[in-house]
Design a binder for these strands. Structure first.
Length: 115
DNA sequence: ACCTTGACCTTGG
DNA sequence: CCCAAGGCCAAGG
């Protein structure tokens, strides 16, 4: 049964969380990149959906490593995120934005390479 | 079925 | 660099 395009709510959530868990220490990726990677498998969802997953289930994973396209920290959680990045010495442009050129991590193939 | 909301993105001024 | 507008996708009222 190849071509399983049907996207159960739970499957989408799981794929997103699995990816976020794989973001290495001191690095970060964007909502958009995660959305793109997951969409390649489920065929649905966008950056906002990833944001929703994080809002509802993010507490279980390193959510602070998921940032906006311009490197700004997750809206409404900037303080906590900044603390974490300070602790793991993530390359920053300033106090508000991650340096994605240096700290950026592409989820891409990671999804296919599941354990 | 319509409207609003949201841990978003891109483009243009 | 800052701001506004339009696009986007799904959930909830």
């Amino acid at each position: 049964m190849s071509g399983n395009v049907s996207t159960s709510h739970d499957e989408y959530v799981e794929l997103v969380l699995r990816l976020v868990e794989r973001i290495p220490w001191g690095r970060a990726t964007t909502y958009g990149d995660i959305a793109e990677a997951v969409r390649a498998v489920t065929g649905s969802g966008g950056p906002r959906q990833v944001g929703r997953v994080m809002a509802l289930h993010g507490s279980a994973v390193p959510w602070w490593r998921v940032v906006r396209a311009d490197g700004r920290l997750p809206a409404g959680h900037e303080d906590e995120a900044r603390q974490q990045h300070l602790a793991e010495a993530t390359p920053m442009v300033d106090a508000e934005r991650i340096d994605l050129a240096r700290a950026g991590w592409d989820p891409g193939a990671t999804l296919l390479n599941r354990p």
